[in-house]
Design a protein around this nucleic acid. Structure first.
Lengths: 346, 346
DNA sequence: GAACAGAGCTTTACCGGTTCATAGACAGCT
DNA sequence: AGCTGTCTATGAACCGGTAAAGCTCTGTTC
């Protein structure tokens, strides 16, 4: 039953339609050289036989690979929780689908493995292009990947992506906005729980946070760099809230950590937002599921993915080498932020 | 620059090593017919030239596709939140990686689209096998997909998967365990917030829930079928908690809905677990991030994915046609379940 | 009415591997 | 020396398409 599939090929279609396989090929690629009538007869026969061009054979001749690679270097357990990626991916997919491209996804453990994977994918012509994410400062992936000459779009600020055409969002402005908003509410002791310091966008937000705090005459040193996992966010929050002059507001680098932070506050008997205001980042549905719902810097992550995918096609076609900016995350106030309850010093 | 990559082929390697390309091929496929010395010289040259067999060309000759397909039919926004899938996927990946296979992922909007996608993937020989998930009762995908003759593993109880070799977990027993645990704590009004009734595993849990409740002489009709999204879980919880004889314990079908349920309880001024106990399902990290942390029916989802992937290879190789069971989810008590505070009737 | 153009197909040469029938070299045996 | 068998390696066919050159035939143009 399972063995010996019918194996219909372009030759069968050609023979049955009484034309050469070249003609069938032209018909299926919308190229001139076949009359309307013939073209339709070919389609008719192909449908009868249930024939679809063999993707593999096709890409062996032409150069198109029809597949785009995405390697993500974060622990699987974390990714499962990080709402960002699935939404980002679904945005990418929606564009790829339009062109019958597919996404090849792989989780890798470290950057070396990532580079090796891309090299293999590219050398073996498995993929036609790639989407690079999570740029570090002086990212070690840049030289070897550039050397490949593989079409790729980088997600991250152009200053980080070492010449790869990038798609980026203005994290600096968003971070500054977050600080100004909290300061406007009357907070003076504002802290930030960020992702790894080496990670480019975390670093950018950290700098912007500090600069904006300074600009407002506030102390911008209440910052913690940690991972992105909830537990790490919890630990960082606990640390911050246990200091004598504990912050009255905390900005997080994603929403998982913010949710974990809210749990820590509750566990310590602190009321959100009265005792401490919390501001999440990325704003997935998760922010609306807690009580109180979390204020957040919101982001259309799905669209972000779409823009990235479209940019990649432009790169593949050679019509893009410039960076592209998507809208800056904007503040969505919910129940987790309010003016601080008590009078405070610096 | 970007144009004109070196394009090293098997011929270059053969020429440089002073052998025929057939020899290179044999060397790289671990088949007899090349001496140890020659083999090593070939590898040496290949490394020098940075040559890797062209995956596409390779799969055109041999029959192996090197790619496994997974189409998921759930709204993207929901998936982003559902910790289950990313972990499941990472489990799959870890096995695929061993064999240099890759996962082709696509989010689809409905079952028709899913079937069409698999048909295209299979007919066009893009994939060598597939993983089918989210089975419905009398699932409409079964007949067309079986007709394809594509190697596939189904995730779900064998009674649902229409003859596809399946990998499943004993949801019925787990649901019964959940009920018995809550009953043992003294709860009598136990409710359940489940996924869509059409979805096979939700239906199985629903039946087991009802049967076990009956067995214990309790009323098993407090069940709501909804989506898997947090908001739906919130709405369902609100509905349940607003009834006059509100439940003192609620079992959820995933953890997102349980988290949302906790928020609803808080919003209604109810204390978890004193006023209402909550029991989540799947047990991602999320359950440990809330306050109180959620008790859950735990599951090694990563391993589940691994088992599924391994089963798929067996199917592809023709050595499996039987179902395979993974461990039953087991109860992990945390802070969200306790004996009910007040004396209750039926 | 010879030359030319263009539409509509066919032919042929790849793309980059795998596979298999076959041949050469060499060792062992009678 | 002649025969057989094993090991290594080659060459050509093939996988299922694409692309570009080539061939016919009909209709124009001067």
């Amino acid at each position: 039953m399972s063995t010996g599939a019918p194996r219909v090929t372009i030759n069968d279609v050609a023979k049955r339609a009484g034309v050469s396989k070249g003609a069938v090929s032209m018909a299926f690629n919308d190229r001139p050289g076949v009359s309307r009538a013939t073209r339709e007869r070919i389609f008719e026969v192909a449908r009868e036989l249930g024939w679809v061009p063999h993707q593999t054979a096709r890409s062996l001749s032409g150069r198109r690979a029809g597949i785009v690679g995405l390697a993500i270097c974060r622990p699987a357990r974390l990714l499962g929780l990080e709402p960002f990626y699935m939404e980002f991916i679904s945005g990418i997919e929606s564009v790829l689908t339009e062109r019958s491209y597919s996404l090849l996804l792989r989780l890798v453990r470290d950057l070396d493995e990532e580079v090796a994977l891309y090299e293999e994918w590219w050398r073996s012509k498995t993929i036609g292009g790639a989407i690079l994410v999570d740029f570090h400062r002086e990212d070690p992936r840049i030289p070897p990947l550039r050397a490949l000459g593989m079409p790729a779009v980088a997600v991250g600020h152009p200053s980080l992506t070492g010449g790869f055409p990038s798609v980026w969002t203005d994290d600096a402005t968003a971070a500054a906005d977050a600080v100004r908003y909290l300061a406007a509410l009357g907070h003076r002791r504002i802290a930030r729980v960020g992702g790894p310091a080496g990670l480019g966008h975390s670093a950018i937000r950290a700098r912007a946070f500090e600069a904006t705090m300074a600009e407002l005459g506030l102390d911008g040193r209440r910052q913690v760099s940690t991972g992105f996992a909830g537990e790490e966010g919890a630990r960082a929050t606990r640390g911050l809230l246990l200091t004598p002059d504990r912050p009255t507001a905390i900005v997080y680098d994603n929403d998982i950590m913010a949710v974990a932070g809210a749990a820590v506050a509750a566990e310590m008997g602190l009321v959100v937002p009265d005792d401490v205001s919390l501001l999440a980042w990325d704003d997935s549905q998760l922010c609306r599921l807690t009580h109180p719902p979390l204020s957040a810097m919101s982001h259309d992550v799905h669209r972000f993915g779409e823009v990235v995918a479209r940019a990649l096609f432009e790169v593949i076609e050679g019509t893009r080498s410039e960076a592209l900016q998507v809208p800056t995350p904007s503040l969505t106030p919910r129940g987790s932020t309010s003016p601080p309850r008590t009078r405070q010093g610096t």
